[in-house]
Structure formats: structure tokens, C-alpha cells
Simulated assay, not measured.
Amino acid sequence: MSACLLPPLSVWQTPEMLVEIETAWSLSGYLLVCFSAGYFIHDTVDIVVSGQARASWEYLVHHVMAMGAFISGIFWSRFVGGGVLTLLVEVSNIFLTIRMMMKINNAQDLLLYKINKYVNLVMYFLFRLAPQAYLTYFFMQYVGQRSLGSFLLGILLMLDIMILIYFSRLLRSDFCPERVTSPQHKDKFLTE
């Protein structure tokens, strides 16, 4: 849970990361990007070794894209600010995790679940959709001038698609539940 608070803390410590996406650098931001890349490597290896690659292919694709994006910050100290901004999504994971735990326990009728689904919607917008749109806009402006920017834009566009798919699944599940009746995916919480 504390890892979810590190990206906003890093931005608060070095606010120029919001505007100097390519050149802003701080030790906390750099270490956060390094730690996150290590997590993605560890989780990828765990998924493959445990034989869950087929069921978790979406996570594997996401992890590979994230690792590719973090490499520029780790090895070239460029776009650390962009890496930290992409990690703002971790804040919304707090509410997504609460949602998932309540769904596992069949607690969708509780008031807490109903409140969380609206808070979740706001947090998804503030910490997933808005930063992703901002970063995409940034890289679209400078894509012709930077080869690394083009590479990162490609990753961002693929992540944009994934985030929008996840957002539509969340909306369908929480706000149009009568339409979600897919028995073949009953064990996947991404579809719920």
C-alpha cells in the first residue's frame, strides 16, 4: 500500500516532473523507476515460472511495455519524470484492490462497495486516464524530434488502449452488471 503513495510523493518533492518530463530528475524518482522495473521483471518471471503465462498474457504484455519504457530512465536518465507520472496509476490501485477483495467476498451489496465504486471511478480518471492522456499529448508534440520519444510514444499508445479496455470493463461490471454474464471468464477479475 505504501508503494502506491511513492509516485505522488516523488512528484511533490520534484514538481518540475510535471512539466519537464524528459529532463526532470530526482533520486526518489529514479529509485522508484528502478524499483518498479525490478518488480515488473520479478512478476514476469514469476508468471512464466508458475505456468500462468497463458492466463495472464495481458499482464505479461503490460510488464514488457513498462520495462521498455523504464529503461530510458534507468540507463540514460531521461524521461524519469515520465516514468514517475506513469506510476501515478498505483494510487488508483488502492481502490481497485478494495473492489477486488470485496468482490471475492461477495460484498457487492455493502454500502462501502457502492461508495468505493464511485471513488474508484474518480481515482481511475485522476490517476490513470488523465496522466496517460497528458503523457500521450506530450510525446505527440515532440515525436518527430526524438527517436526515443517515438519509441516511448508507441509504448504509451499501446498502454492507452489497455487502460481504456480496463476502464470499459470496470464501467460494464460496476455500472451495467446485467450485461456482464461471461462464464468463460468467471475466474478473471479483469473482466469483472
Results as ranks from 00 to 15, higher is better:
Y30K: 03
R172M: 15
P183S: 08
Y137S: 09
N93V: 06
M140N: 11
F75H: 06
F35Q: 06
H62G: 00
K186D: 15
L156G: 02
T23C: 02
S92V: 01
I161N: 07
A37T: 09
I165G: 06
E90P: 00
Q132K: 04
S150H: 04
F175S: 10
L88C: 12
V119Q: 07
P7A: 13
L112C: 00
V61P: 02
T23H: 07
M100L: 09
Q184Y: 12
G149N: 04
L27M: 07
G149T: 04
L87I: 03
D160N: 12
V89C: 14
G38H: 01
S28D: 11
L157T: 04
C4I: 03
S168E: 12
E178G: 10
L88W: 06
S173N: 09
L87K: 02
L112K: 00
A107E: 12
W25I: 13
M17V: 02
H185A: 15
L164S: 08
M101S: 12
T44G: 05
P7T: 11
I21W: 00
D43P: 00
F189H: 14
V64H: 09
V143T: 10
C176A: 14
L85P: 04
S72Y: 07
N105W: 03
L148R: 06
G29Q: 04
N106E: 14
I21S: 01
P7Y: 10
V84D: 12
M67V: 13
I163G: 00
G38P: 00
A107M: 09
S28F: 00
F139Y: 13
I163P: 00
S173T: 05
V91F: 07
T14N: 12
L6A: 14
S50W: 02
F70I: 01
F95E: 04
A69T: 03
G73R: 01
G154M: 04
M140H: 04
M65K: 08
S50A: 13
F127E: 04
L85D: 09
I165C: 10
Y134H: 09
D160C: 10
H185R: 15
L112S: 07
W57L: 14
L135D: 07
K103G: 10
L129T: 11
E16D: 14
F70K: 01
A53T: 00
V64Y: 08
